[in-house]
């Protein structure tokens, strides 16, 4: 059982839902990433999603596209992301950490080499946005062997057959994309989400996280009422961009967003 499973088990025992912030590694500067991760944990994050920047993030909206561009301009690479994870693990051996990104940097690294390096750095899960279950065997096998959870997306349009197939391959949690669109869109319909989650729950015991379009404490609380985890990304990344020149303000203000969501979710 890896850190993700242990965390969901503990949350379930205490009757709470997971709060999962996303930030892009290396944005706005590689030196800010590890302190930001620690600040997120201090503010109440349960699991961390760390974005691996890619030149062509086709499932992301403008906020995360720009974050990728800024990070790449700072020379961020998958290898350096793993170094940041390793650094984070020096002072936090408990909080689960999931890498989220696109397949090509991993292909370029080599699947086996990547999995070995990710395990050594302390990665607990890998969500590859453009790797659907049909194509995933080659990467999922070494991930599973190393105890790293392959995490997959489900969408409002996913059929029953696809949900079943995906749930068989997935470990850790399933990430439900709450709307038709890209990250950072703002058209969340909680009733629709609840209906789809009920359908998914009938087919799997994996925890269900919901992301895309959650941008306020109220939205986080509403989603937490029907899901096991709430993923927040673009809202944090926008705030980080606003505060890029004042790191301490950035850690504090981004932490505040998480703290407010945590309070609303636990209320």
């Amino acid at each position: 059982m890896n850190r993700i499973d242990r965390r969901f088990q503990a949350l379930r025992r205490s009757g709470r839902k997971a709060l999962i912030p996303y930030i892009t590694a290396g944005d706005p500067h590689p030196e800010r990433t590890v302190p930001m991760l620690h600040a997120l944990v201090a503010a109440g994050a349960d699991i961390l999603e760390l974005g691996v920047p890619f030149s062509d993030p086709m499932a992301d909206g403008p906020v995360i596209q720009k974050a990728c561009e800024r990070a790449l301009a700072q020379g961020m690479t998958l290898r350096r992301v793993l170094e940041l994870v390793h650094e984070f693990r020096q002072t936090d051996s408990e909080t689960p950490l999931v890498l989220m990104g696109y397949l090509n940097p991993i292909e370029s690294f080599g699947y086996e080499a990547f999995v070995t390096a990710a395990a050594a750095a302390g990665v607990d899960g890998v969500l590859t946005v453009d790797l659907p279950p049909e194509e995933a065997d080659e990467l999922a096998a070494p991930l599973n062997a190393a105890g790293i959870a392959p995490i997959f997306l489900l969408a409002p349009t996913s059929s029953t057959a696809r949900i079943r197939h995906t749930a068989l391959l997935a470990r850790g949690y399933l990430y439900y994309v709450s709307l038709k669109g890209v990250t950072g869109s703002a058209a969340l319909n909680v009733a629709e989400v609840a209906a789809k989650l009920a359908e998914i729950r009938a087919l799997t015991d994996l925890p269900l996280g919901v992301g895309f379009g959650i941008n306020s404490p109220a939205a986080a609380a509403a989603v937490a009422a029907v899901a096991d985890a709430v993923v927040v990304g673009s809202t944090l990344v926008s705030k980080m961009a606003e505060r890029a020149d004042a790191p301490d303000d950035m850690y504090r203000d981004v932490g505040e967003i998480i703290r407010a969501m945590r309070l609303a979710m636990d209320a």
């Binding site: 049909e134 997306l153 969408a155």
Partner: peptide
């Protein structure tokens, strides 16, 4: 070849 897209596009491709 293949189909390397986010889940959000899979049904549209089907």
């Amino acid at each position: 070849g293949g189909r390397f897209v986010a889940e959000t596009l899979m049904e549209a491709l089907h």
